Amino acid sequence: MRRSFAPSQKYRKNDSPIQNSPDSRVLKAFILPITITPKRTRGRSSDDRETKRKPLTQCNSQILFVSDHEDIIKKLSKPFKCPIANYEGCNSTKNLGIRKTKVKRALYDPNMPNALVLYAPPEMTEHEKLKSEGPLLVHVVVDPLLGNILRPHQREGVKFMYDCVTGVQIPGSYGCIMADEMGLGKTLQCITLLWTLVRQGPEGKPTIEKAIIVCPSSLVKNWNNEINKWLKGRLQAMIMDGGSDGKKKLQQFMQGQGRTAIPVLIISYETFRMHADILHTSEIGLVLCDEGHR
């Protein structure tokens, strides 16, 4: 049945015949008014409900309410005020997020067994360290990967070469000649010296950034194999034994800087002479000449 045809709807119309009839008063007496009572809340009065929910704003005839928790958050969201009286701020120039400078230390422990120390800084007290104006010097220790396999005469040879190339052996002179007989490990000694200079120095940073190994063309790959054999791939080297793109490779080697740069170049004597102008564009820390009598 449709709602418009229901008896309650039919008799409420103004044009209803029952309202115009004499018995309309009797019918109205039986129709009771419908009232809607508000929903009761347990233990809360109308005043409490008004304080609990307050109107925030009105938008498109819809009222939004905010809870007490949000009211508390609003009261707390005030500008920070230092509790220290008469505080004007810190005069420090330090910035957040920047790593603090660490104390300079040797790359390897000079006191460990079988350690080969190539440089030892002068002993200083803590008071003298604070008063010293120069950089703090640290020990230079050969990598244990190589130091533990060096024979006694090879350890002396590495120490001799290090003193010569750093100017300690003869002040003002930087260089030496390694003229041992075959089979005494000249290549291993040179690789140890090269790896030490590339990795560390007395000032806590590498002594050199780039090195060139010049050798006959038949020994270029042999030098690369020896480096990978003793250093287990820790030192990356660029091989140059000719080719059409040799000039481009040399320019990349000379322009490379930072950790991504290749520190060692292995090149033949012929290629070295052809591109000598490129190899003079920047500083080279060390040059090793194999078969130097050539």
Rank of each mutant, 00 (worst) to 15 (best):
N222T: 13
E88K: 15
T207Y: 14
G285N: 10
I84R: 15
D245C: 02
T57W: 09
S21A: 15
Q58W: 10
S45P: 05
K75N: 12
Q154M: 11
K205L: 13
L279Q: 05
D143R: 11
L194Y: 08
T281Q: 15
T57L: 14
L96E: 11
M161N: 00
M161E: 05
I63C: 07
V66F: 15
I239K: 06
P171L: 02
G243S: 02
K39V: 06
L286M: 15
Q58H: 12
D109S: 11
K247F: 01
G89T: 02
V103Y: 11
K131Y: 11
P113R: 08
D71A: 14
V264I: 15
T196S: 14
Q154H: 08
K210C: 07
M238G: 03
P135K: 06
D241P: 03
D47Q: 15
P171K: 06
L279D: 00
E88T: 12
M240E: 07
D290Q: 03
D15P: 01
V138D: 00
K13L: 07
Y87W: 15
I31F: 02
L76A: 09
P7Y: 00
E126G: 12
C59M: 11
E128Y: 08
P55N: 01
Y87P: 07
R53E: 13
C82S: 14
G258W: 01
L146F: 08
D163M: 07
P122I: 06
R40Q: 12
I208S: 05
P121S: 02
I278R: 01
I31V: 08
T207A: 13
V220T: 12
Q169D: 12
C176H: 06
I177V: 12
T281V: 08
K52G: 08
C190F: 06
Q252Y: 00
A6F: 09
N14W: 12
V103H: 14
Q251T: 06
I262S: 02
N86P: 01
S77E: 14
P110N: 03
Y119C: 00
L96C: 12
R273Q: 15
T35S: 09
K248V: 07
I36G: 07
L194R: 05
N222W: 01
K39D: 03
I239L: 15
A237T: 15
P202L: 05
K159T: 09
P135R: 04
I18E: 02
M124H: 14
P113T: 01
N60G: 09
N95M: 10
P144Q: 10
S46M: 06
M178Q: 10
Y174P: 04
P206F: 09
W195G: 09
H69W: 13
R49S: 09
R199N: 15
S61Y: 13
E209W: 00
I84C: 11
P216S: 15
S45A: 08
N86G: 09
T166F: 00
K78W: 04
